[in-house]
Simulated scan of single mutants.
Amino acid sequence: MNTPVTLLLEQGPMLKTLGRIAISTVLPSKKSANNPNSFPVISERVASPSTKLIEHYLRWAGVTGDRYKGHIPPHMFTQFAMPICSQQIEMTRYNIGGIINQGCGMTIYNSIPLGKDLQVDCEVVSVTEDNGRARLHQRLAVAAVGGEKAIDVDFYTAFIIGKGVKKAKEAPEPMEFSSQGSWSASSNDGLEFGILTGDLNPIHWIGPVAKMSAFKSKVLHGFGMFVRTFELIQQSSSEDIRSIDVKFISPVKLPSQGNEVFVTTATQPDGRHRLEQRDNKGKVQIVGSYC
C-alpha cells in the first residue's frame, strides 16, 4: 500500500463523525417524527490539507504533471465535506446510518490556494419524500478565507423510508460516445481512499464485513469513482472542466479492471457533454454531464 496510515492524523473531524454515526446506529436515540421547518446554514473554517496529504491524494487520483501546483484540487472537498454536511443530516428524521450516496455536482469558479484556511458553508436546498424514498439535496460553498468563492458542490443523498413501486426506465436518447480511456482499482483502493479522506466505512476495505452488505464484496467509495473519472476526462480534454454532475448507478467492486469512461463526441443542446462510466462487461456505473 502506497498511502501512509499516518495521514489519518489529519482526519480528526471525519473520524469523529464516523464514530458518532456508529454509536447512533448501535444505540439509536429517539428522533423527531418530522423534519425541521427550516435548516440552519452550517459555516465552518477548515484548515487547508497538508502538502503531504495532497501529494498522496493526487497520486491516488491519477493526476500527473503540475496541474494543481500551489492549489488544492477542487474535488478534494471529499476530505472535509462530510463532517459539515452530516450536521444537517442528523437534524432530519432519517437514520444517517442508512444514507445512500446518489451522486454529486461541482461548479468551479476559482482555484483554491494551498496553505490558506477554507471558509465552508453548507445549506439544505430541498428535502422531498416520494415512492418510499426521502431525498436530500445539500449545497456546499467553498472559498479561501477572505477570498472569492472557489467551488459549489451539490450533494444528493437518499434514505429508504418505505416500500417503493419500481418505475419503468425510459429509453435513453441515442448519442454517439467515444472512449476517454479506463482506470482500474486495486483491492486496497478503498482503504487508501479512506485514509486520504477519513471515510473508513468498512464496506470499502474490510472483506468479511463487505460480504455481508448488499454489494457482497468490497466496493470503492462513490466519491472515489467521481475523482478518478473527473481526472481521466480532464487529462483527455484541452479545456478545464468548469461544471460536472454525476449520478452513481452501480458500484466499482474491488479489485476491478477496465472501468471505462465515455463522453459524447459533440456537445448537447445545453452546451454540455454527456458522460458514462462502464465496467469491463458494459454495465453502467456512472452517468452525468460536464462542460
Score class of each variant (00 low, 15 high):
M1S: 10
P4M: 07
V5N: 14
T6P: 11
L7T: 07
E10A: 07
G12S: 07
P13T: 07
L18S: 03
I21R: 06
A22E: 03
I23E: 00
S24T: 12
T25V: 12
T25A: 13
K30S: 12
K31M: 11
K31Q: 13
S32P: 08
N34V: 05
P36A: 10
V41L: 13
A47N: 13
S50I: 03
Y68P: 06
G70S: 04
I72E: 06
A81S: 13
A81C: 12
M82L: 04
I84L: 04
C85Q: 10
E90A: 12
R93S: 03
Y94M: 11
N95G: 06
G98R: 15
M106V: 01
N110C: 00
N110S: 02
I112P: 10
I112C: 15
K116F: 14
V120F: 05
D121H: 07
E123T: 05
D130V: 14
N131R: 08
A134I: 07
R135Q: 06
L136A: 13
R139C: 02
A141W: 10
A141F: 12
A143I: 01
E148P: 03
E148M: 08
A150G: 07
A150W: 05
I151W: 01
D152W: 05
Y156V: 15
T157W: 10
A158G: 10
V165Y: 08
P174Q: 09
E176Y: 11
E176D: 13
W183R: 04
S184T: 01
A185F: 04
S187T: 05
N188A: 04
D189V: 01
E192T: 01
F193R: 07
L196P: 03
D199V: 00
P202A: 15
H204V: 03
H204K: 00
W205N: 09
G207D: 15
P208W: 07
V209G: 05
A210V: 04
A210F: 13
S213Q: 12
S213V: 04
K218N: 08
H221N: 10
G224H: 09
M225R: 08
V227R: 00
L232N: 00
Q235M: 09
R242W: 09
R242A: 09
I249T: 09
S250V: 14
P251G: 04
V252D: 01
G258N: 07
N259E: 10
T264A: 06
P269F: 06
D270M: 14
R272A: 10
R274D: 05
L275W: 03
L275A: 03
L275Q: 01
Q277E: 02
K281S: 15
Q285F: 01
V287T: 06
C291E: 15
